[in-house]
Design a protein around this nucleic acid. Structure first.
Lengths: 93, 93
DNA sequence: CGACCTATGTATAATGT
DNA sequence: TACATTATACATAGGTC
């Protein structure tokens, strides 16, 4: 968006990179919030920047709660949409 | 966006909610990816849906690595942008 | 269910204050 | 250095296949 099309690669200018980080971090958090409300989803978002900034978001539940839930998933269930009834059972357990 | 402006509240129609989830999940992951590349940031994103879907994203590092880093932060350092030098020192330690 | 289409609302890059 | 503005690229609601 913006005045010019932006290539998706590391922004070399430090000031520009931090300004862009601030803006996009806010946008990403807003989107995460909207998704969590619209679709009744638990979302956890964590960002670490090498330039010394941290940002995170989560909906109703605490980030910790969501992280624990994720970590407790068997490995093969991480990372792809669930579809079978049995998988859904497990997810809801 | 879209043809109609959407209020930010839970979408009651199940089908619509799942369709919106699919679309916005993809959009959110794309944004997270762009942020991680443009700003050289580690991002972890986890989504749990009550309707039985799971989605996640992380950049170079594994989600687990980022989660561990987050969990190991002292409580008072979680949750807001870092600004003072001393805080940045701690974050980089 | 996901992929594509298109009108329209949003996010945001560059710029101004 | 942060905040406001503006032009423009992007995301997406609703619909079709």
């Amino acid at each position: 968006m913006g005045r010019v099309k932006l290539q998706i690669k590391r922004i070399e200018n430090t000031t520009s990179r931090q300004v862009t980080f601030s803006k996009r971090r806010n946008g990403l958090i807003k989107k995460a919030y909207e998704l969590s409300v619209l679709c009744d989803v638990d979302v956890a978002l964590i960002m670490f920047s090498p330039s010394g900034r941290l940002g995170h978001f989560s909906g109703n539940k605490s980030i910790e709660e969501i992280l624990v839930r994720y970590v407790n998933l068997p490995e093969h269930e991480r990372g792809s949409p669930m579809s079978t009834d049995s998988q859904i059972e497990v997810l809801h357990a």
